[in-house]
Simulated assay, not measured.
Amino acid sequence: MKENQKINLGISIGDLNGIGCEVALKTFEDPRMLDFCTPIIFASNKTVSHQKSDLGIEMTFNGVRDASQAVEGKINIVNVWKEVPKIEYGQATQEGGSYAIKSLRAAVSALKDGSIDVLVTAPINKNNIQSEDFKFPGHTDYLAQELNGESLMFMVADTLRVGLLTDHIAVKDVAQAITPSLVRHKIATMEKSLKMDFGIRRPRIALLGINPHSGDNGTIGEEDDKILKPIITELFHKGTLVYGPYSADSFFGSDNHKNFDAILAAYHDQGLIPFKTLSFGKGVNYTAGLDKVRTSPDHGTAYEIAGKGQADNSSFKEAVFMAIEVFKNRTEYMELSKNPLKKQKTKRAS
């Protein structure tokens, strides 16, 4: 990205039968959003025009063949396909899933070659995206394969940040999946992201227990005593401010989460139920730990309201703003890491 150039923000369109296109268009229907970034939607002129007309959204856009041709100050559409796919709002069709992946693949390719700086992904259906050449349970797993780094599913809403040790796996497989190596890697990824992406110099991390009451000293499972506690002690002595394991059932209700910069939950629902209860509609799903920035709204395809113009774009807009903020924070962090004297000079000047 050139100096003073706005951030090129790529958008994968998600399931065409869901609310992905709607929340994206509603976000950039406000022309002031173009002051923050150059939006680049990966779909087709005809597909976006169709949805725009159905939803009664008034806006103009600029069609391009490649993200590198995007024009600053306009909403850009990269024409990933020429045909006109059938749109069946509210239906989980194979065609809807197929075009969601076409959009995602094109957007990730542009992210990798630098044509876009950050990626915001609209919601997909984890079932209808499956095919012979795409066998991933969701965005995070696909991005982890395509991009460099150690991925962490990180849910963020203002100062509430919840990461996951395990994400899209069955509950019956959770305990076996949580190994000392996994715990160390996830804590390290979270700590690095808090410093690099959120500007927190000495982050405090809380680790939630795997079993009810964190195992009650081995009465309800031994994983907390044998895996989590030794690692917490080990890392704390090395300088990582990680605490726990905390009993998950009372952690959020007692407001203990406010004492930490981030919380690492053992499995999907343990972390996401309290997160969405506290922040639904304002949360952002951030894939931390990768060499590129990707965010997403905290909701799904919402088939039940698709095509009706009722979708709330608040979470998508938050995902846009967070992608921009993280990109800027990360860029500044990298610059300061290369030239630590720059930070000292800035402090003296102020």
Rank of each mutant, 00 (worst) to 15 (best):
Y243D: 11
S12R: 02
T27M: 02
D35Y: 15
F28R: 02
L9D: 00
G14V: 13
F275I: 11
N285Y: 10
G14F: 08
G307R: 10
A144C: 03
A175D: 03
K258A: 14
A110Q: 06
V84A: 11
A106H: 04
P274L: 01
I263P: 01
F236S: 13
V120W: 03
F36A: 12
S115Q: 15
I200V: 14
S115R: 15
L143N: 00
R201L: 13
E325G: 08
Y246Q: 09
Q130M: 14
P137Y: 00
K82C: 13
N211P: 12
K308F: 10
D225L: 15
M322F: 15
P85E: 07
T179E: 12
A265C: 01
F321R: 13
K328I: 14
N79W: 07
D133K: 13
S109Y: 07
K102S: 12
H213K: 08
N76F: 05
S151G: 11
R32Y: 14
G149F: 01
N8F: 07
G18K: 03
V120L: 06
D133I: 09
H299L: 06
Y286V: 10
S350A: 10
F28K: 05
K342G: 06
D225A: 15
F252W: 03
I210P: 03
A122D: 03
F36V: 05
F61H: 05
F28W: 09
D66A: 10
S314N: 11
H139Y: 09
T295Q: 03
R330Y: 04
G307E: 10
E304D: 11
E72M: 10
D298T: 07
A100M: 02
A262G: 08
D249Y: 07
